[in-house]
């Protein structure tokens, strides 16, 4: 049986705009999306061989981003930001973008609080990863899934 228009649209919504976006982009010959290796490599460059843990770091993203061109994100790390113990840097990665790196924030004790927000582009529905590196070498991560209605990487 041929699907009705309604069923077809529903199906598209369920399987996600990701497939449409990926298919559409590949036919245009645009660069492929970041592979798992790219993400792993960017992570390894940033944290080295430190063990990652969860907690302390919070990544805030919208659950659904209607426009992938401007997705507000914010990160915060619980820390007193003293000279002896502070958050050195926080890197944000997007698993499904053509290039996984998004932004790296570098803090100093003069930052007072390890909080920062910005707006990013997301090509499709994907996981956004934040990694925080403390001055004592410990590493914290947080991951959020963001559903993207309209991708934001041109085409």
């Amino acid at each position: 049986m041929n699907p009705t228009r309604r069923q077809f649209l529903k199906q598209q919504l369920l399987t996600g705009s990701a497939i449409i976006a990926a298919g559409g982009l590949s036919t245009l010959g645009l660069p492929a999306f970041a592979s798992a290796e790219d993400v792993a490599q960017a992570l390894a460059e940033f944290v080295g061989d430190a063990q990652t843990q969860t907690g302390l770091l919070t990544l805030k993203t919208p659950e659904i981003a209607e426009n992938g061109n401007t997705v507000p994100i914010s990160i915060s790390v619980e820390s007193d930001m003293t000279e002896d113990a502070y958050v050195e840097s926080v890197m944000v990665l997007a698993e499904g973008n053509p290039s996984p790196k998004v932004i790296t924030f570098h803090f100093t004790p003069a930052s007072g609080q390890a909080v920062a927000s910005t707006r990013m582009r997301l090509a499709k529905t994907q996981n956004v990863i934040a990694v925080a590196k403390m001055s004592d070498g410990s590493v914290y991560t947080d991951t959020k899934n963001v559903k993207v209605t309209i991708g934001g990487c041109g085409g």
Binding site: S99, F105, H106, T118
Partner: peptide
Amino acid sequence: NPVFSTDIDAAISSNPFIQFSAR
């Protein structure tokens, strides 16, 4: 004295907005 800095990649939106704090 440095307070805060960022390395920005292509995935940041046009007209980049950055919010942070300082003591």
